[in-house]
Design a protein around this nucleic acid. Structure first.
Lengths: 337, 337
DNA sequence: TTCACTATCGAATAGGTATTCAATGCTCCA
DNA sequence: TGGAGCATTGAATACCTATTCGATAGTGAA
């Protein structure tokens, strides 16, 4: 098959003579269909290995070799990519509750499972994880995780105090505890309410070494696992004794707040909303939060849509785990950047 | 690297959890479509480079990533021209499976890839495409298409209802859906069975506005993408629950039918064969079908030879994408016009 | 013919990927 | 409960591929 003479007039498809095309297809077949290595092909055709490489490249450019990725049904790769691009996220995971109009419970379960898988595959060791507590979404996530015998994280730190009465405070630390057990990490609790009764009370608490020591660890976090709060009443918040009084919620809404991450509120555009509440929150501050390399938000359900969108717009989040419904709406958002 | 597998069904969820599939697809797209290097992907997804390599390998094995070598047009130019002239076609594309005696799977892949290239090069925008569903050939075609950044078609319309059980009905719409996504077009589905249980049932269905609205769009199609059916049992038809009962097939054969396009049957000479079935088919009718400016048939394999020849003789088709074996036989046909 | 320019080629090697290997976890059976 | 056997993992690395770079040949103008 070696060389042909350079024919004068040939139809020339793609700017190339058919003889060239035949060589291209031949090499492409040997490589892609017969699995031959380039040196083998080179030897058989009496050409050099770099030449084979160049021919293959050319064949790909000309579309003679085409590689396609078929998205299996039930996987929403395009959707995820669109959201990643639109909001500049590192990773998006879309969980499919598998029902046309899923209830909150199904959504919770779906994103919980997806979040768990995400953590299981991406926590490989050494991470210092912050976890915002009291979110039923995070609870669902942690519940769906399988215990790892080998430590896959160094430390799990509670970045927000407990909320509400002492019962739910316990519950808040439980989340951090569970995650720590599951990942084999050391757990660091924040033995304090998430919301002090006054700025002064917060100062007092923060001067307690038990607490300040914990706060000092926030700077070294490599990852934050957070739920997103919406300013609609959430079942859990209500249950846990209305951490944020109705009046305060109202005030926040009037300031334009639509949601929060770790009790730091933001408006529709994702801009931080300052409020008197800020000085009573016992937890990670905005600056430290934003300096964490990987902030993973797990949140879904139409009730939280506005909050999720705002969090993405404001760049509060690097990785989002959400449900199909929210994902579709996010993907349909006009690009406002 | 053995490529030979009798993988005749859908994307092949090889007993894997959806979350696994999701990751496979994600990695595959990052690598093959976005051209990212493995270390990059590893970093972004917080997994190790060897893992990325293994995931890619697995994705290839599962058929999520498929690489095909397409015969560039022009290699078989003479053959193509001869068939065009003999049967008065607008265009013929001959795909070379590249093996002396290719199995159905190789033929499928070859003509699928060739069909994909044909579509990619001839769809330039504004087309309203009808697509006949449930054809494994069309599936192979759509699977081999690369996504286009700009929309190249206006609308993709399903011109035949689904066939068989509800599972394969979904599968039928998926084909239209995929094509719509790939071309950036709006998808219009026909939410109905392709074959009603009785003429009366068909009437009822057709009076449903969801369905009649779709039927009304058939008149404006600028192009039809169709498979060709032969009256030999096809693996897919059998699998999807014998849409056409054996007895009916037999009856059709006795009427002289050798094949169909969109469930409209024709005999050896390409003449339409009227049968009781006609009044049960929910899809495009013969007259509308024949008025479509460009009917592209993608079909190959010796099993379908008689049907293909008949379709050409009857002038059902303007463009044919087929395999080398069929092409050679077609070119050797005596001119009987 | 000569010269300048460009295209093409292969040796060397940089770059990227797949595999090996040892460690560890899981499953199943005694 | 213990442990044999199999599966999975990432670090190290062998392997394979793509690119660089200098050499050579073709091309066209003077």
């Amino acid at each position: 098959m070696p060389t042909e003479r350079s024919n004068l007039r040939e139809p020339a498809i793609g700017g190339l003579a058919p003889s060239q095309l035949r060589l291209l297809t031949k090499v492409a077949r040997m490589y892609h269909e017969h699995g031959m290595r380039q040196p083998q092909i080179a030897e058989q055709l009496h050409i050099s290995q770099p030449r084979v490489s160049r021919l293959l490249k050319q064949a790909t450019e000309l579309g003679i070799v085409r590689t396609t990725v078929v998205t299996p049904s039930g996987v929403h790769a395009e959707l995820e990519e669109r959201i990643e691009r639109r909001f500049g996220l590192r990773d998006v995971v879309v969980a499919d509750p598998g029902q046309p109009a899923p209830g909150e419970q199904s959504v919770l379960q779906a994103i919980g499972a997806a979040g768990a898988v995400y953590l299981e595959t991406t926590l490989t060791g050494g991470d210092r994880i912050g976890i915002s507590s009291w979110s039923s979404t995070l609870l669902a996530t942690v519940d769906a995780m399988r215990p790892r015998p080998t430590p896959v994280a160094e430390r799990v730190v509670q970045v927000i105090g407990g909320v509400g009465n002492s019962t739910s405070q316990v519950y808040a630390t439980r989340l951090a505890d569970r995650l720590a057990i599951l990942t084999g990490a050391e757990a660091v609790f924040l033995p304090a309410p998430g919301l002090a009764s006054s700025p002064a009370a917060r100062e007092v608490l923060m001067s307690d070494p038990h607490i300040s020591d914990v706060l000092a660890t926030y700077g070294g976090l490599s990852m934050l696992l957070a739920g997103l709060g919406s300013l609609e009443p959430s079942p859990l918040l209500v249950e846990s004794g209305n951490a944020i009084a109705d009046g305060e919620q109202e005030a926040l809404r009037e300031l334009g707040a639509v949601g929060d991450i770790c009790l730091r509120f933001f408006d529709e555009k994702g801009q931080a909303v300052r409020s008197p509440l800020d000085d009573r929150v016992l937890g990670i501050d905005v600056e430290t939060l934003r300096s964490i390399p990987r902030v993973v938000a797990i949140a879904g359900g139409s009730r939280k849509y506005t909050a999720i969108r705002a969090a993405l717009r404001g760049g509060w989040v690097d990785v989002l785990v959400t449900d199909l419904g929210v994902a579709r709406r996010l993907a349909a958002e006009p690009d406002d950047r």
